[in-house]
Amino acid sequence: MAIENPLSTSPLAFPILECFHIAGFALAIGMTALVDLRLLGIGLYKQSPSHIARAFEWWSLAGLVVAVFSGLLLFSTDPDMYYLNWSFLIKMVCLALAVAFHYTIHRRAVFRGISPSAGRLVALVSMMLWVSVIFGGIFIAVVRPGLA
């Protein structure tokens, strides 16, 4: 007996989940970008990078959790398509790299301090990784018609 994904029974489920997905990653990526901009000397310059990161830590983690769980549900509506979609695969690799970088090198740079030039490099790598996740996500829909 085939079990239908309940998310596929309503045409509204996918777009509503997408709104949660976008709100979640915008919060997580945007708040991280504020820390990155501070490492570049832009934005909240009166606060230290660690002060900003600590203030937003739980909010941005909450955003990431919402984005990941809504993302899993979006994935569940058409797993074969996503699995075969090269943009999706690139997105997952970038996401894994971005999260790993965030909780290792980025975290050390923000909380333990680092030379300003190294801080700028860390900030640029962090922003590039997160933006590449966004590009990977947008291009899922672009490369989709190429699939058999």
Binding site: I22, A23, F25, A26, L27, I29, G30, M31, A33, L34, F56, W59, W130, V131, I134, F135, G137, I138, F139, A141, V142
Partner: peptide, 25 residues
């Protein structure tokens, strides 16, 4: 253009993340 449009869309979404986070903060 097959690629320019989604690139602009991705830039729009990236800018939303930054702008949106500043609003939420």
């Amino acid at each position: 253009s097959a690629y320019a449009y989604p690139i602009v869309l991705a830039l729009h979404v990236s800018a939303i993340s930054l702008f949106g986070a500043m609003i939420v903060v």
